[in-house]
Simulated scan of single mutants.
Amino acid sequence: MREIVFDTETTGLSFAGGDRLVEIGCVEMVNRVDTGRTFHAYFHPERSMPAEAQAVHGLSDAFLSDKPLFAAGVAALLDFIGDAPLVAHNAGFDFSFLNGELQRCGRDPVCRTRMVDTLQIARTRHPGAKHSLDALCSRYGIDRSHRVLHGALLDAQLLAQVYVELNGGRQIGLGLLAETAPVAIAATTVHAAPTPRPPRVFSVPPAELAAHAAFMARVKEPVWYQGRPGGAAASG
């Protein structure tokens, strides 16, 4: 399954109140494995950057002055995310800015049924604990030493690792059955029965077979013959 883990940086806390999106970072995951494909962009907010917001992410008016408007990069962004579920920490906040910018430039908003909120997952898995991205990185031993300021792509990359841990860790990918494509039946998607992987065949050298037979000949009253006709004398 393809998923996009993403994060945004903004000029403030409320798109409806006049704040704008200035940075977005996206990480592609397939079956909860980071593929290495990312999307990252800065956008000119068409307004000044408040000092308190700049203190969080370090993005100044001077830095953003030559960056494109959101409308100029929206096609590439939408092409990258496709129709995949979108994973974010406190996802309602990021969705409000993403959809606000999309609607502002005449695009359809992203349906909230695609929203996966790692904050809610963390609250369910670890009630009463701290649930910030920093706290979750500490809990799961994820290195965040290079995170001096918030940055959308860096935070999305850290969140991708946290998301894997929140869903059981790396062992979730150690399946023993081959994956099968879903079969569509009317309005319902049904997965075909998994196909077992073919057994591996190992050849045993004749010398080892002879040594094994000699050893077995010395075993008296083996338990695997008990209860069979002839008892320990049975063969085959």
Rank of each mutant, 00 (worst) to 15 (best):
A207V: 15
Q226K: 10
L69C: 06
L176M: 11
D61G: 09
G230L: 05
A129P: 02
H131V: 04
Q171S: 11
A233F: 13
F15G: 00
R218F: 00
L177N: 10
A233H: 06
E165G: 07
G231V: 01
L158D: 08
R32L: 11
K67F: 05
T118W: 02
A51G: 02
A84T: 03
L209T: 14
V110Y: 01
A76I: 06
S138W: 00
N31R: 14
S145I: 09
T180C: 07
T11F: 12
G175W: 01
P229W: 02
G92F: 01
G236I: 13
Y42H: 10
I4S: 01
G227T: 10
Y225L: 14
A214D: 14
G12R: 07
Y42L: 09
D94N: 04
R139K: 02
A51F: 14
H212V: 12
F80V: 06
H146V: 12
G36H: 10
Y225C: 09
T35Q: 03
I81L: 03
L149W: 14
T118E: 01
F95T: 11
H89N: 01
Q171L: 05
L174I: 04
S235H: 09
S132M: 07
D66K: 09
G17L: 06
I4C: 01
F202Q: 06
C111L: 10
A76C: 07
V22F: 14
T11H: 12
L136D: 00
S132L: 04
D155K: 10
A187T: 13
D79R: 15
A210C: 08
I185W: 06
L166M: 09
F202T: 14
V204D: 00
Q161P: 08
V183M: 11
A156D: 00
H150S: 03
L153W: 04
L154P: 02
E9G: 02
V201P: 01
D83E: 02
